[in-house]
Amino acid sequence: MSTRSAFVICALAYVVSGVSRTVIAQGLGTPISEADVAAWDISILPDGTGLPAGSGTPQQGAATYATKCAVCHGEAGKGGSAAALVGGAPLTSGIETTKTIANFWPSATTIFDFTRRAMPWPKPRSLTNDEVYALTAYLLSLNKIIGENDVMNAQTLPKVRMPNRDGFIARFPERMP
């Protein structure tokens, strides 16, 4: 509230000091089309909104994984300098249990989203969409969440049922939209 009234007061001040009223009325943001934002718009929502065209299989993912990921995450996702991407103890083992794709992640779309935006660590956003689908399929299949021949694409990925999808409680429900 105070912001809005502050803005009005400030707008008056600008007018007094001679800055054109039009600038204030239009604001200072430059309109931009969604097409021009596209290269930055990499948010994938849990219902699949934002998933691009393309597809991949666990087998295709295995090949990319060996060349681009194994150096840090270990052979077949067993872990190395960076986290293991396969396995995980039950969450009832203790509050300090290492969280993994298999024991924790609520949504398969997060694997796609994070791999595409952040991995491989030294060269983020260098993977093609097909490679990201294939890597996601590979990681899901390694964890036996999908079958060895299942194809991941914009339709199949959001339907993957993650083992721990119902394991979460909102800390402050009254703050949730």
Binding site: L91, I95, F104, P106, F168, I169, A170, R171, R175
Partner: peptide
């Protein structure tokens, strides 16, 4: 998202 003793986890702690 912190794990609780019963194996559930808090999400959106804010």
């Amino acid at each position: 998202a912190p794990i609780l003793p019963n194996g559930k986890a808090y999400q959106f702690y804010f």
